[in-house]
Design a protein around this nucleic acid. Structure first.
Length: 641
RNA sequence: GCCGAUGUGGCUCAGUGGUAGAGCACUCGAUUCGUAAUCGAGCGGUCGCGGGUUCAAAUCCCGCCAUCGGCUCCA
């Protein structure tokens, strides 16, 4: 970053002289850092689509596009007030205050107007002004939002002009002229509501999203990948592969798990339960409902009452609520006896289903639901054990992510409290200790991470594991939280070696986070092609004619007896159709059974990953299937005849 | 919760004021077939729900519900 690379023209223009116009040279912003334009001749698959942060050129291009869009909007809609318009990962947006909603048609007109502006080749000129001068000019325009922006700016205050017609308060940088923007390498994507300053108490503006690239080829590839991403959307695949459904009759955000989806769920659960037993966790089970009082002590009631399903009962004193978290229940198990330091660390684990009345606008597929299952555990530890236990939890999460092949696609976030906010409980000292513990762990592991200020839970800081879905939206999966506050609130104790009563520290942790969300993400990561150990149907037997049905049933029974999820296609269709259906259902292993196979007590194997593998003895297939399942691997083997 | 768009058989979609359509799926029949769709017939929808306008509403208007794209929120 920051280094000036080979001077190749951006976009179409041949060589653009940096200071084209000596007269205004001093007003031009720093030279555009030019990079090699993408080679149109290279195959689409290899076209790299950089995020804005990767490319100085794209920063300028996308940012200037947002200005050009704002100018176009104000030309077409004089009532529109402009606010802010930054670049984003793959494009830009601009927020407008406008009395009428922008429509699809408006977007087309705006795009046309933008092309006009680009083709005019307006110079982009930077001007430094005093605060007073900026204020004077904004007032002349009558743009109250700009005035508010100005108040927050630090010197020097700079304006960017597009020709002599339009300007915006902006720190830049930009390209030098609108000719540096390619009129066929951008598109306007959508219009959406967005609150001014991100504050839901303030005006709601209209945000227009656009995408912009150096070349039309990149734009085409970007759009192609968006389409591809839609094909792997878990909501679409969930229906196609018959994994889960939603029902208006049951209610929004309440998934119903079909038999195939339930296999996914329970396989994941069984896997994690096994790993947790190996690591000294003790399974517990707690009810779905509990007294309001419990949540008052924890602080959740005061904090999240509006997000709980309504209370059952006459008053808060004898009322019950559906649980929205498991911690207060696990705490009660801890409290059910006087604990000795010898019992610690105590690791109580439960696949606990919780219910949260999420805002209606938040619901979507499996990533945000109102009823979901946490792979929750609470660890009660002494201060001396804290660091070690935290590291062990992180190791567990990393192990799990690796088996699920999600390692390499997550980002680790240190989620700390916002010192400006008063939504947290507990002493500064407790918070400091907890934050330090998390920092120590991340340092010890040398884990790459970023910090999220204001992302902490109200009772403690977190280390979160964040992944992207097919459409590049980020979701929190796993989490580890250090908590000094709930032990205090619930008056937890243990008897120390010296006989004194001490307070344990709690670690809240969930490697999957929510089973529902994890499965949604996995569907998209795998595009529905689950590894064999997770696949709802692991092998389907395809009889060439009805003559082979009996043999196929017999082999399926043998496979099932060894724990393999096998089924026989009974449809009576021709082989081509059977293959097609199995492929569409993304069944990892297909076994063609014809007269030759019955004769040889063999199966003709075809896998989704390797295609036809030839005829393999039945016993051998059973062995390879069970091996693939046991090792979380694939169906392996050399082709046999 | 807010802004906007969308809602037609199980699925994907056509139909914009005048008697609800197609493909796939499903059922039945014929075909016994070797690596991504055999042929034919049949079944299936109070057009999201509730009001209104009209001689007449899937189609126009209003309200609600749900979904989608964002914003806000996310223990």
């Amino acid at each position: 970053m920051g280094q000036v690379v080979a001077m190749f023209p951006i976009a179409r223009s041949p060589l653009v002289a940096i200071a084209q116009c000596p007269k205004f040279a001093h007003m031009f912003h720093p030279p555009v850092i030019m990079v090699r334009a993408a080679d149109a001749s290279q195959p689409l698959e290899s076209i790299h689509l950089p995020r804005t942060s990767e490319s100085e050129t794209l920063k300028r291009i996308r940012h200037t596009f947002s200005h050009v869009m704002a100018m176009a909007v104000q030309r077409l809609f004089p009532k529109a007030q402009v606010t802010i318009g930054p670049w984003i990962d793959y494009g830009f947006y601009y927020d407008f205050d406008h009395p009428e909603p922008f429509t699809e048609k408006d977007l087309k007109a705006i795009k046309k107007e933008m092309i006009k502006i680009i083709n005019k080749g307006l110079p982009v000129v930077r001007e430094e002004v005093s605060r007073e001068e900026a204020k004077r000019r904004i007032e002349a325009l009558g743009e109250p939002y700009k005035l508010e922006i100005l108040e927050g700016l630090i010197e020097p205050i700079t304006l960017y002009h597009l020709g002599d017609e339009w300007w915006d308060l902006c720190a830049g940088p930009h390209v030098m002229t609108t000719k540096d923007l390619h009129p066929k390498a951008f598109d306007l994507e959508s219009v959406a509501g967005a609150y001014w300053r991100g504050d839901s108490n303030r005006a709601q503006l209209q945000r227009i999203y656009g995408t912009a690239w150096e070349t039309p080829e990149q734009l085409a590839e970007y759009q192609r990948r968006r389409e591809e991403a839609k094909r792997r959307d878990h909501r679409k695949l969930g229906r196609e592969l018959d994994l889960f459904v939603f029902s208006d009759e049951v209610g929004p955000g309440l998934p119903l798990w079909t038999p195939k989806g339930t296999i996914l769920r329970s396989t994941l659960e069984d896997y994690l339960k096994k790993v947790q037993v190996q690591r000294g966790y003790q399974p517990v089970v707690t009810p779905h409902v509990g007294r309001v009082e419990l949540f008052k002590i924890s602080g959740h009631w005061q904090k999240y009452q509006a997000d709980l399903f309504p209370m059952m009962g006459e008053s808060e004193d004898d009322g019950f609520v559906l649980k929205a978290m498991n911690c207060p229940f696990h705490v009660q198990i801890y409290k059910s006896a006087l604990r000795s330091y010898r019992e610690l660390p105590m690791r109580l684990a439960e696949f606990g289903t919780v219910y949260r009345y999420e805002q209606s606008g938040e619901l979507g597929g499996l990533t945000r639901v109102r009823g979901f299952t946490q792979d929750d555990a609470h660890l009660f530890v002494t201060p001396e054990q804290l660091d070690d236990e935290f590291l062990k939890v992180v190791d567990l999460i990393q192990h799990v992510l690796k088996v699920l092949k999600l390692d390499g696609s997550f980002r680790a976030r240190l989620s700390f409290r916002d010192p400006e906010s008063d939504k947290y409980i507990g002493s500064d000292e407790a918070w400091q200790k907890a934050e330090n513990a998390i920092r120590r762990a991340v340092e010890t592991l040398g884990m790459e991470h970023f910090e999220g200020i204001g992302e902490a839970a109200f009772y403690g800081p977190k280390l979160d594991f964040i992944v992207r879905d097919a459409l590049e939206r980020e979701w929190q999966l796993g989490t580890v939280q250090v908590d000094y506050n709930l032990p205090e609130r619930f008056q937890l104790e243990y008897v120390a070696e010296d006989g004194s009563r001490q307070r344990p520290i709690m670690i809240h942790r969930a490697p999957f986070g929510s089973l529902e969300r994890l499965i949604g993400i996995l569907i998209e990561q795998y595009a529905g092609d689950f590894p064999i150990w997770l696949a709802p149907v692991q092998i389907r037997l395809l009889p060439v004619t009805s003559e082979q049905l009996g043999f196929a049933e017999q082999v399926a029974t043998q496979l099932r007896s060894q724990g393999v999820r096998a089924e026989v296609d009974l449809s009576g269709d021709r082989l081509g159709k059977l293959i097609r259906n199995a492929e569409k259902s993304k069944i990892p292993v297909m076994a063609v059974v014809g007269a030759k196979e019955v004769e040889a007590n063999a199966l003709n194997i075809r896998t989704r990953t390797s295609g036809e593998m030839g005829s393999i003895a039945v016993d051998e297939v059973v062995a390879r299937m069970t091996a693939a399942i046991a090792t979380y691997g694939e169906f392996k083997g050399t082709d046999v005849g």
